[in-house]
Amino acid sequence: MEQVQLLGMWLSPYSYRVIWALKLEGIAYEYIEEDLSNKSPLLLQCNPVHKKIPVLIHSGKPICESSVILEYIEEIWPQNSLLPCDPYERAIARFWIKFADDKSPSISKMSRTSSEEQETAVKDILEMLETIEEHGLIGGKKFFGGDKISMVDMAFGAVAYWLGVIEDAAGLKISEAHEFPRLQSWVQNFKEVLIIKENLPDRDKMFPLLKRRRDVAGV
């Protein structure tokens, strides 16, 4: 059987994107936790350009960047399709994945930046949430693609789970339920999917770490 390994980090929503996809497809894999303050020779060898996680290693061949890895999983193990079959719908899904990749970093920035930078991050996050509410979750859909979880939902995993913990650590509330009813409904649906529910980082472990980050940043 072909060996599958995942280099990741327990706090990273990008690592969890890949974990969810592998679990959904029923792919056995070896998870290797990385210490990003002391990156392993394997990580540096597999991702010499960006030196970041996650990295999927399939039969000795490394694939980097979470969105690229998800596309790879979709092509190699198509048992449970993560993208629509229709070419137009597939293009729309890729648009939203790119949107998530562009905008989601603002969430982590909110937990580790100065007060002035935090204001910019909060503004960017609000714009992202408003766009999702107005244009991404329309037509009464349970998930971005309809009634079934897809690659787009995984791409927005940081919004569904990490944002709430970071808000609590920062003492801020951005994603008010009454302002984003479609988004809040999606968050609940997303976290009720068994594979998601069983594969999320421990909030009690996340909170003090994120709080310390803010203290170090002097916010």
Score class of each variant (00 low, 15 high):
residue 83 L to M: 07
residue 95 F to K: 11
residue 174 I to L: 09
residue 117 E to Y: 15
residue 146 G to F: 10
residue 192 E to I: 07
residue 3 Q to Y: 11
residue 164 G to K: 11
residue 175 S to A: 14
residue 73 I to P: 00
residue 21 A to R: 01
residue 99 F to N: 03
residue 84 P to M: 08
residue 143 F to Y: 12
residue 32 I to Y: 02
residue 213 R to H: 13
residue 55 V to F: 03
residue 54 P to C: 05
residue 176 E to L: 13
residue 207 F to R: 09
residue 27 I to E: 02
residue 95 F to T: 10
residue 33 E to Y: 10
residue 212 R to Y: 13
residue 96 W to P: 01
residue 99 F to G: 03
residue 96 W to V: 06
residue 142 K to L: 08
residue 188 Q to A: 15
residue 166 I to D: 01
residue 215 D to C: 15
residue 176 E to C: 14
residue 45 Q to A: 15
residue 25 E to D: 06
residue 19 I to C: 02
residue 128 M to V: 11
residue 161 Y to V: 01
residue 219 V to S: 14
residue 15 S to A: 14
residue 39 K to H: 06
residue 186 W to Q: 05
residue 105 P to S: 09
residue 189 N to V: 04
residue 185 S to L: 15
residue 165 V to E: 03
residue 17 R to S: 01
residue 149 I to A: 00
residue 125 I to C: 10
residue 2 E to K: 14
residue 10 W to S: 02
residue 45 Q to Y: 15
residue 205 K to N: 10
residue 29 Y to S: 00
residue 177 A to F: 05
residue 66 S to D: 05
residue 39 K to T: 05
residue 119 E to Y: 13
residue 133 E to C: 10
residue 69 I to N: 01
residue 19 I to F: 02
residue 192 E to H: 07
residue 34 E to I: 11
residue 153 D to G: 04
residue 135 H to M: 13
residue 131 T to W: 13
residue 97 I to M: 08
residue 156 F to V: 04
residue 211 K to C: 12
residue 1 M to R: 09
residue 173 K to Y: 14
residue 163 L to P: 00
residue 207 F to C: 05
residue 74 E to N: 09
residue 144 F to T: 07
residue 190 F to W: 06
residue 167 E to P: 07
residue 176 E to H: 12
residue 155 A to T: 05
residue 169 A to L: 04
